[in-house]
Design a protein around this nucleic acid. Structure first.
Length: 566
RNA sequence: UGUCCUGUGGUGUAACUGGUAACACGUCUGACUCUGGAUCAGAAGAGUCCAGGUUCGAGCCCUGGCAGGACAACCA
């Protein structure tokens, strides 16, 4: 029964279609059964959650089959690429928990080889220099439904081509004056096979090769060749490169000398509801100041998710859950949020914090008295132990936890009602103090000394347990609440409306005066906490010695809020 | 008037050489609880884009449609 599966560790259905293909390749002894993948970002922006899917797929696949995965920067366009991005990308991949060992490469490492290969193509009559400008070339290319026609320079002699190409390299021409094209088929039904441009003149300095080159290979002329030279067996990329595959294979045909041959496999990129996932659009949000940088916690970039309080584990679990297919769908952000909650629930230190403080005075609690209450650090993990929480006569509770005139299903504090203060005492609201506008400013309550720790010896039950912070001991903090950046599920899905029209004006709410229990003092930036009953929060790097800043990663599930909505 | 790809509950994924649709998220009940969290138990929700065909039997195979997406950057 189980031997029907190549990999018995996995139940049927656990494998995605790429793994199925790989297992077939291994079974057939293709490439000596090796599995070698690569993650090939262009260093022209920050990585986002969609890249995380690809990173997990590429590195995860290599891990699964005992193979390797290279990190390779696809830096063939010096006008867009920068070292800043090279660094952030490495940081993000490492943070996600993957390791490329000593296999860090750049397409620019291969510029010499690529140039030699181009020369070889020219000598074989498979490439030629075209003198026409971009517009002319494009007009000759035809359309997807109509064939193109040949350039007048298509059949010049090999010697002339060699001479011109060398001159291109030496800088004899200006940008756009000449290009090198592969000589394939101007009538091909596949646009990419209609004599694609493989080298163009660009006089911008390259972030790694400086001004050594003034001609640069195009993506199609670099990618597959780099794969080949690195011994990549499975070149996994997104669906839009599907139509490029015949060209990928054409170049490999020119290169292949042994039985070894890389294979390109395409999968659907990640689309997340209520977010945009294009580097260009994200760049626009950053450049136009709609967000505060690439790592603004509302962004879908990996650096933003990190700052927001997501964990690598949560992101990897998410990538596992969404699977890998060729169906171009849209994943609900709720699944991403579920993934963090799931992980943080198991790992986050619990703490009490009050976001919208309402002062409570325990009128029968001795003035000046203080106690330390025992609190559990994480009910999901006993090993995390206990802590002490200071209690005193004056406390803050959440303003939302009190209603003067509560509806039927509201179990929290109300005049005359008794509730529990978590890990502390039962209290009963006896008096509501208001200002001249009728706004509640303070609550007077009494406590039951016998209920210390949170239970009454007479077995009396209360419906609600509230979180609280002692006024005297509280740490004041700024808390930043985030909501989705867009109000529309598919901001890019409207033809005549710019996606920025759907930006959520309430995506960031800053609460300058929140009170957290003293336990958080001295915690390091990015530390994760659960503020009980509220959600998961982490310390923002904006925090200074004197001022703590928290980000809300995600709320807790809240069935009360859900009921209210109905 | 092209080429290529894709169509399974609301969403995502699964169903091995055809064997009678499974899992997760979400939704809704209920139990439990010192977090209206977590946990546990349960429910609703698709008959697999459509139409034919092959077969004892089709989500899987065949034929023909339909729908959606990608491709016309000297971007990747």
């Amino acid at each position: 029964m189980a031997e029907k599966h190549l990999n018995e560790k996995d139940p049927p259905g656990k494998n995605n279609f790429i793994h199925l293909q790989i297992e077939k390749d291994i079974a057939e002894g293709r490439n000596q059964g090796r599995v070698h993948t690569r993650f090939p970002p262009e260093p022209n922006g920050y990585l986002h959650i969609g890249h995380a899917k690809s990173i997990c797929l590429n590195f995860g696949t290599a891990e699964k089959y005992g193979g390797k995965c290279n990190l390779r920067f696809d830096d063939t366009n010096p006008s867009k690429e920068e070292t800043e991005y090279v660094e952030s990308i490495q940081e993000d991949v490492r943070w996600l928990g993957f390791d490329w060992g000593d296999r860090l490469f750049y397409a620019s490492d291969y510029f010499d080889k690529l140039f030699e290969f181009a020369i070889r193509l020219i000598k074989n009559g498979k490439a030629y220099v075209d003198d026409q400008d971009a517009e002319t070339i494009s007009s000759q290319k035809g359309t997807p439904t109509r064939p193109g026609f040949e350039s007048p320079h298509r059949n010049r002699s090999i010697d002339e081509n060699l001479d011109l190409f060398l001159k291109m390299k030496e800088g004899a021409f200006s940008e756009g004056e000449r290009v090198l094209r592969a000589k394939i088929d101007m009538a091909s039904p596949n646009m990419h096979m209609r004599d694609p441009i493989i080298y163009r003149i660009m006089k911008s300095p390259h972030h790694r090769t400086g001004d050594k080159w003034c001609i640069y290979p195009m993506y199609d002329f670099a990618h597959g060749q780099c794969d080949y030279w690195e011994g990549i067996t499975h070149s996994i990329c997104t669906l839009e490169f599907e139509v490029h595959r015949p060209l990928y294979d054409w170049f490999i045909d020119q290169l292949q000398e042994t039985g070894y041959r890389p294979r390109q496999i395409e999968f659907a990129r990640l689309n997340l509801s209520y977010t945009v996932m294009s580097k260009r659009k994200l760049m626009e949000l950053v450049k136009d100041g709609h967000v505060n940088g690439w790592d603004d916690p509302r962004m879908p970039t990996i650096s933003a998710l990190r700052r927001r309080g997501y964990t690598p584990q949560a992101i990897r679990n998410f990538a596992e859950k969404i699977g890998v297919t060729k169906v171009d769908g849209m994943i609900d952000v709720l699944l991403l949020e579920h993934s963090v909650r799931e992980h943080l629930n198991k790992t986050a230190q619990r703490v009490m914090g009050v976001l919208n403080p309402l002062k409570v005075v325990i009128t029968n609690y001795p003035e000046g008295q203080e106690e330390e209450m025992d609190a559990v650090n994480n009910p999901e993990d006993e090993n995390m132990g206990m802590r002490k929480v200071p209690f005193s006569r004056e406390l803050y509770i959440e303003r939302d936890d009190f209603m003067e005139d509560p509806p039927r299903k509201f179990f929290r504090l109300a005049p005359g009602r008794e509730v529990r203060l978590r890990y502390a005492y039962f209290i009963t609201c006896v008096n509501v103090v208001k200002d001249e506008n009728g706004r509640v400013t303070e609550l007077h309550c009494t406590y039951d000394p016998a209920s210390k720790g949170g239970n009454s010896p007479d077995g009396r039950k209360v419906k609600a347990t509230l979180h609280w912070v002692s006024v005297k001991h509280a740490v004041k903090a700024e808390v930043r609440l985030y909501d989705r950046l867009f109000t529309d599920e598919d901001p890019l899905g409207h033809k005549d409306v710019d996606f920025k029209e759907f930006m959520n004006p309430d995506s960031l709410k800053v609460l300058p005066e929140c009170y957290i229990e003293p336990f958080v003092k001295g915690a390091k930036p990015l530390s994760h906490f659960q503020f009980e009953r509220l959600g998961y929060f982490n310390i923002d790097p904006d925090s200074t010695g004197g001022k703590l800043v928290f980000n809300r990663t995600v709320r807790l599930r809240d069935t009360w809020a859900k009921q209210q909505k109905r």
